[in-house]
């Protein structure tokens, strides 16, 4: 942050707010979509905001110790930091944030920071359900992270860069989405997105009927509220990341200029991310639940194959 620190700060705050709003709305939309699929009316779209407000409005809170106390902080910090290092819109004044100061490898590691911080907090509560959930969650990470890395490595070597901005720039300059340039990598990444969202069939972590919501089981009130906020932002982060990587990102430094350009870019972003989001959501509606080892093995089978194909594709693409 150099001279225009105020503008940059505003940009950061606005980005965070945007991510928060969109993420929360997406959560509500998901509930709505699921309800419609089940022939229900469903809650209003803004239901998540009400839930959050209620949770933050709880007059008493309990925590089990420092790590539990700080667990939601980890999640939020990881989500917002990741957000700041991802180009939400390409070009424009507000949204680059720190995108030139971190690359994909860094993002990969940053994205697990929240889960691990959360896991520590869960561990300290002493609730066995929480620990079981963490065990499952960590196992699942080893599942979906591998195809994701494969697809990332594939596009890294295909385009000789590890920078997200460069990849976006390439896509917008040529007009070719990387989803087209390396379909296998995209496929592998899509599979891992399914895992990342922890929706059905990969929702064994918090399986409510079995584990009493697993890791979350000791969190209530402001802690649950913060976790929800973090989760919503993080959901948006993941969507933007995949959009930027494979779907050309949003915004165009040449085509969209000025305030209208920013708005147009946002609209594009929302459309793309929403469509992307509907993939795990709609699969989640119809799928039953995998056991942990089934889920992990699933990820080590087809997605891994697609990832490997993606790499081979990338090597021979030149």
């Amino acid at each position: 942050m150099t001279g225009n620190w105020l503008i940059e700060l505003t940009g950061i705050v606005l980005t965070a707010l945007l991510a928060f709003t969109v993420g929360m709305f997406y959560g509500g939309l998901r509930r709505k979509v699921i309800a419609r699929a089940q022939n229900r009316v469903g809650p209003p779209v803004y239901q998540n905001f009400l839930d959050l407000l209620k949770l933050q409005g709880k007059t008493t809170n309990v925590t089990h110790g420092l790590m539990t106390h700080l667990a939601p902080v980890w999640v939020l910090v990881a989500a917002i930091t990741a957000l700041l290092f991802i180009p939400v819109l390409h070009g424009g004044l507000w949204f680059p944030n720190f995108t030139f100061k971190g690359d994909l490898i860094f993002l990969l590691y940053l994205m697990v920071m929240g889960s691990l911080g959360m896991a520590l907090g869960v561990g300290e509560t002493g609730n066995p359900n929480g620990a079981i959930g963490v065990s499952r969650g960590l196992s699942l990470i080893t599942g979906y992270e591998i195809p994701f890395v494969l697809s990332l490595v594939a596009i890294m070597i295909q385009f000789h860069t590890t920078s997200l901005t460069d990849l976006m720039h390439y896509q917008q300059a040529t007009g070719h989405w990387i989803a087209r340039e390396n379909p296998f990598a995209f496929l592998a990444a899509l599979f891992s997105v399914l895992g990342m969202f922890h929706y059905s069939p990969f929702d064994i972590i918090g399986a409510p009927a079995e584990l009493a919501s697993g890791p979350m089981s000791e969190f209530g009130g402001k802690y649950l509220g913060s976790l929800m906020t973090g989760g919503s932002i993080f959901a948006f982060v993941k969507l933007v990341l995949i959009t930027d990587l494979f779907l050309g990102g949003a915004g165009h430094p040449d085509a969209y200029t000025g305030a209208a350009g920013v708005l147009l870019g946002l609209v594009e972003l929302v459309i793309k991310t929403f469509l992307l989001y509907m993939i795990p959501v709609s699969i989640g509606i119809v799928m039953p639940r995998f056991r942990t080892e089934q889920a992990v093995r699933f990820f080590w089978r087809w997605p891994l194959l697609f990832g490997a194909l993606g790499i081979i594709w990338a090597v021979f693409w030149k």
């Binding site: 309800a35 809650p43 239901q47 409510p208 919501s213 979350m216």
Partner: peptide, 22 residues
Amino acid sequence: LTSRYDAERLGIRGAATPRQAD
């Protein structure tokens, strides 16, 4: 809670543990 009466439209949803419940 399910489709027929759909309590969720009133904002009512199940909670798994007392810590989260209202």
